[in-house]
C-alpha cells in the first residue's frame, strides 16, 4: 500500500529529473543551467531518500544528507566562479 505511493513518487522524481536535464541542455544562459543543476540536485536528494525507503534500508540517509550539503556548496561555488571568470577576462565582456 505504502510502497505504491513510494513508487509513484520515485517515477515522478525521475521524470522531473529528465525534464530538468532538458532545461540544463537548452538553457540559453549559464544561470539557467545552474538553476537546472540545482533542481536536479535537490531531486537526487529526495530520490535517494525515497529509494532508501523503497529498498527497505532507510539507514542510508547519510548519502542524501551529504548530497544536499555538497550540492549547495557546488552551486554556490559555480556561481562564484562564473563571477570570477567574467571579471578576470574583461576584454571578452561584450
Amino acid at each position: 500500500m505504502n510502497n505504491m505511493f513510494l513508487i509513484v513518487t520515485t517515477i515522478t522524481l525521475l521524470v522531473v529529473m529528465a525534464l530538468a536535464l532538458i532545461r540544463a541542455f537548452a538553457g540559453p544562459t549559464v544561470f539557467d543551467r545552474v538553476l537546472a543543476g540545482n533542481l536536479f540536485g535537490t531531486k537526487v536528494v529526495l530520490l535517494i531518500a525515497v529509494m532508501g525507503f523503497l529498498t527497505g534500508r532507510p539507514d542510508f540517509l547519510d548519502v542524501a544528507l551529504t548530497y544536499a550539503l555538497i550540492n549547495f556548496i557546488s552551486v554556490i561555488g559555480i556561481l562564484r566562479f562564473v563571477e570570477i571568470t567574467r571579471k578576470s577576462s574583461p576584454k571578452e565582456q561584450s
Binding site: F5, V8, L13, V16, L19, R23, L39, K43, L46
Partner: peptide, 21 residues
C-alpha cells in the same frame, strides 16, 4: 496522511519543473 503528502509533493515538483521548462 503520508500518501497524501507524497502525492502532493510529487504533483508540486512536477508543476515546478513544467514551469522551469
Amino acid at each position: 496522511l503520508s500518501a497524501i503528502c507524497l502525492l502532493t509533493g510529487s504533483f508540486l515538483i512536477l508543476s515546478g519543473v513544467i514551469g522551469v521548462i
